[in-house]
Amino acid sequence: MSRPSIHNINGRSVLSVEQYYLFHYELPPVNSFNYNNCNGFIVYRSILHKELRGIGTGEISGIASETWHIAKEDFRIFFNNYAQKINQAVKKKFSITFKHYEVKPNKRKNKTFIQQSKYPYVKQEEVTKIVYEKEVEDFKFVSF
């Protein structure tokens, strides 16, 4: 079984995995990925998954694992460095920003509250006192 390889052709890095008929696949730019904290193997597996269409995810993972383990050390180092560049590009692209919110008072008032609160509380008590004062004077205890 032949080993997967990375070559530099015309200033571009290309991937070849001959036993799966993947020849001179040009690696995408690092800013085209949306991974957060990925490693070299994840990047390699995602590229295989993208290019080897029609094969299930589990089978792709097996292929990636098998070819990753037979690859030369410089191949794995290349993908680990490539993953670090992707992580740096993603951090720049998706930097966390916080929006500062202001608490705004509620300008809309409840109509029922406005209607109930027409008079100040003291005035309400005086009006209530006048209404019930006569009833209090006329009140009699009745015993059986």
Rank of each mutant, 00 (worst) to 15 (best):
N80L: 07
Q116E: 11
T97E: 14
Y119C: 00
T112L: 10
G54F: 00
A83T: 13
N37H: 09
K104P: 13
K118H: 01
H69T: 04
N81Q: 08
E73M: 09
P29Y: 03
R45P: 04
K118W: 00
D74Q: 11
I42E: 10
Y121H: 12
G58M: 04
G56P: 15
S61F: 07
R45H: 07
N39I: 02
F78E: 15
K111P: 05
Y44K: 06
T57F: 08
G40E: 15
N110I: 00
F75Y: 13
I63A: 09
F33R: 01
I42S: 14
G58P: 06
K104Q: 15
L52H: 08
Y101V: 15
E102Y: 06
Y44E: 04
E125N: 10
I70C: 03
Q116K: 12
N110S: 06
F41P: 15
N106S: 08
R45C: 05
K109A: 12
I130N: 11
H100F: 15
K111G: 09
F33I: 02
N80Y: 06
N80R: 09
V131R: 15
R76T: 15
V43C: 02
V127G: 10
V43M: 03
V90Q: 15
I70Y: 01
E51W: 06
F98R: 07
S61K: 03
F33E: 00
H69G: 10
I77M: 12
I77P: 07
H49K: 15
K111M: 12
P105S: 06
K91Y: 08
Q115N: 13
